[in-house]
Design a protein around this nucleic acid. Structure first.
Length: 258
DNA sequence: ATGGCTATATGTTATAGA
């Protein structure tokens, strides 16, 4: 089972990019972030015609997440628990029925800038809610994959110019500590487990960041122990950043024996 | 760089992203 994540930065703007990617990369499951679309405005037929089931959790203008799956989905849920009035569409979860059932959580973690401030408080609170949800999912002892745009640079080596990010919400010590608190519940970072060394997933549109390889790694795939046991391969589709009508993020994928 | 692009809707300007 190949599972991918892609922050598309607007599904309407990526109306050709995303289907072309799906055909070339052929993930069984794709979680998308920043669809920037309401559910009714999502071009679901386009993806259904490619053989995908479509589940969206959209919102007007910003945010918005989705799951596309060639395999049957069960128990789809939208919204990260514990929100109490949080109406930002950043979380969607479903069980994918392959050779094994895999619980997949697709997430778009808040950016948090400027920090300090209310947006940063929201980011940290959201990360604590993520930790709580992750703990519940681990307790099922089933394969669990949490993937998406985490908006956290875990280590200095995950940025081409780490010193430029020192006061940024993506790299502040509290953000990195909160990320580790999730990871250390027992998850495996699929990319660092299989491909040590620099591997970026985002390059800003500005200042020739792509041409200069001034990137950061902020899209991650976290595997529960039961998922890590069946991890076969993982990768970053770096070349997508240099393609037609690119998002500022590129897809990241894992292959599981499931 | 005090944001140099990009995307969306609030739409010929504001807001958000990272």
């Amino acid at each position: 089972m190949k599972i991918a994540t892609f922050n598309v930065n607007g599904i309407k703007a990526r109306i050709e990019t995303v289907p072309a990617w799906l055909q070339a990369s052929a993930p069984d499951v794709a979680v998308l972030q920043e669809i920037k679309s309401v559910d009714g405005g999502f071009p679901r037929e386009l993806f259904e015609d490619l053989g995908y089931r479509v589940e969206t959790h959209g919102q007007k203008g910003f945010n918005g997440v989705a799951i596309l799956s060639k395999l049957p989905l069960e128990d789809v849920s939208r919204g990260l628990p514990g929100g109490d009035g949080d109406d930002q569409a950043r979380w969607i979860e479903a069980t994918v029925i392959g050779a094994r059932a895999v619980r997949v959580g697709g997430l778009y973690l808040p950016n948090g800038n400027p920090a300090p401030g209310p947006k940063y408080d929201y980011k940290l609170a959201w990360m604590e809610r993520l930790r709580q949800r992750a703990l519940r999912l681990l307790a099922t002892e089933e394969p669990v994959v949490l993937l998406g745009d985490f908006n956290v640079i875990p280590q200095r080596e995950d940025a081409a110019k780490p010193d430029a990010w020192l006061s940024d919400a993506l790299f502040l010590p509290e953000s990195r500590a909160a990320f580790r608190r999730v990871l250390h519940l027992g998850f495996t970072d699929a990319l660092t487990a299989l491909t040590p060394g620099p591997g970026y997933t985002f390059w800003d549109y500005q200042a020739g960041a792509w041409e200069r390889n001034n990137g950061i790694r902020i899209d991650h795939v976290l595997l529960s122990p039961q998922a890590a046991d069946i991890l076969q391969d993982a990768g970053i589709e770096t070349g997508m950043r240099g393609g037609d009508k690119p998002s500022d993020h590129v897809p990241v994928w894992v292959e599981l024996a499931a």
